[in-house]
């Protein structure tokens, strides 16, 4: 019981972090997305089988809600203003890290969404490849190739920036 209490707390914090990253650090949109996902989770709580993977269940719901949101917004696309995004980067911890964190943000933001999702789910949220495949409804090979392309694209961008040296101290 008590273990469950902490577990749910952990997974929802995880959902909030993922939503924030997915929605390019827009706090209000991210909380809205999580809120809608949880509303649906409450409504469908009978579909959750005790003892199964709660985290995967929650992430799948969030993913479906997000896909629907994107679909309904597709009719009226609004451009993302890069400067606006950067000003929303609320969390750079220390001055000297600002630049590399900002470059990282930008590199991730510029990824095609399907690659960005996989990178965030794996590298930030620590989901298993199989969980990501099931959640996105794609074969595991597709997950791996998206992950690989995402990482190489980010890598290329960061090394092009020149200002960023990724720990290559000999």
């Amino acid at each position: 019981m008590s273990k469950f209490g902490v577990e749910l707390e952990v997974h929802i914090a995880s959902l909030r972090r993922y939503a924030r990253a997915l929605l390019r650090n827009n706090r209000a949109d991210a909380e809205d997305l999580v809120q809608e996902a949880l509303t649906r989770a409450v409504a469908r709580s009978d579909t959750f089988k005790a003892g199964t993977n709660l985290r995967a269940w929650l992430f799948t719901i969030l993913h479906n809600v997000h896909v629907n949101q994107v679909r309904s917004k597709a009719a009226r696309p609004d451009e993302v203003d890069v400067d606006a995004v950067e000003s929303k980067l609320v969390s750079p911890a220390r001055q000297e890290e600002r630049v590399e964190l900002r470059e990282m943000m930008r590199a991730v933001d510029e990824l095609p969404e399907e690659q960005r999702k996989v990178l965030l789910l794996v590298a930030l949220e620590g989901l298993k490849y199989e969980e990501v495949a099931e959640m996105l409804g794609v074969p595991i090979g597709t997950v791996m190739s998206r992950l690989s392309r995402a990482r190489e694209a980010v890598r290329a961008k960061l090394s092009n920036e020149g200002s960023v040296t990724l720990r290559r101290v000999k």
Binding site: A13, R16, R17, A21, E31, A93, L124
Partner: peptide, 24 residues
Amino acid sequence: YRAQAAFLHEIFDPVLREPASDPV
């Protein structure tokens, strides 16, 4: 690749410390 993951954590882990909105 590891450094990328560390950057992502550095950028987004602060969300874990933010209080959730009331509805959430």
